[in-house]
């Protein structure tokens, strides 16, 4: 059975795994972006908090994803919930960091003009800082989402479903075709998502 025959004969399973994968990553990213943007904005008010949060997210990211997921099993069991929790934790760093630096690295002349004109700090945050930080935020969200897709595959190991299942099953059953299909699809999804979000980012930059 060659590669394409395999793809055609199994397409319903492959499609449902793909959709499952996208679903998990999508839910995780919605939560992650909400939390990350909120945290990123909040920590701009307090340097101490910013340093702590950035360090924690930094360390979170160095924890091997496989280990992070495994550690969640005793607490949350297996399945989609721990997978989503793990993904959210894991994708915080790029979002929080980019939101924070995006807001903090705005041309001082612009801020001085805004203050001098009589805008309140609240207003400056809403009408100047956040809109100007959008491209940086988007870049963080892009990195995080692409990471999420890849790590989502590893979540297949803790019973979250998705395309990772094909890879892990393929390895244990020594089915090269399963492994390759899973790996190729994940790669394609990652690349397409990256390109798409890159396009959005460029649009915001203009």
């Amino acid at each position: 059975m060659n590669f394409f025959e395999f793809l055609i004969s199994r397409w319903p399973t492959i499609l449902s795994l793909t959709l499952e994968h996208l679903f998990i990553v999508f839910i995780a990213m919605v939560i992650s972006v909400t939390v990350g943007v909120a945290v990123g904005i909040l920590i701009t008010k307090n340097q101490m908090a910013a340093r702590i949060v950035l360090n924690v997210t930094n360390i979170l990211m160095t924890i091997p994803s496989l280990a992070l997921f495994s550690l969640l099993i005793p607490v949350l069991g297996i399945g989609k919930i721990p997978a989503i929790v793990g993904l959210v934790a894991y994708t915080q760093l790029p979002i929080v960091r980019n939101v924070y630096t995006g807001i903090m690295t705005i041309n001082p002349a612009i801020l001085e003009a805004a203050r001098g004109m009589g805008l309140t700090e609240k207003k400056i945050m809403r009408t100047i800082r956040i809109p100007l930080a959008l491209p940086a935020m988007m870049s963080g969200i892009r990195t995080a989402t692409v990471m999420g897709i890849g790590i989502g595959a590893i979540a297949g190991y803790i019973g979250a479903g998705g395309l990772g299942v094909y890879i892990f099953q393929g390895i244990s059953r020594s089915s090269d075709q399963m492994v390759i299909v899973g790996a190729v699809l994940i790669s394609v999804i990652s690349i397409l998502t990256d390109q798409f979000l890159g396009g959005v980012q460029r649009k915001l930059n203009r």
């Binding site: 692409v146 890849g150 990772g164 390895i171 090269d176 790996a183 994940i186 990256d194």
Partner: peptide, 21 residues
């Protein structure tokens, strides 16, 4: 840059798919 977006698990899996364990 495009290749860097490919997840590590996919790269490992692909090498197994073509070269075995």
């Amino acid at each position: 840059n495009v290749c860097q977006t490919v997840p590590s698990l996919a790269v490992v899996a692909l090498s197994v798919g073509f070269m075995g364990v």
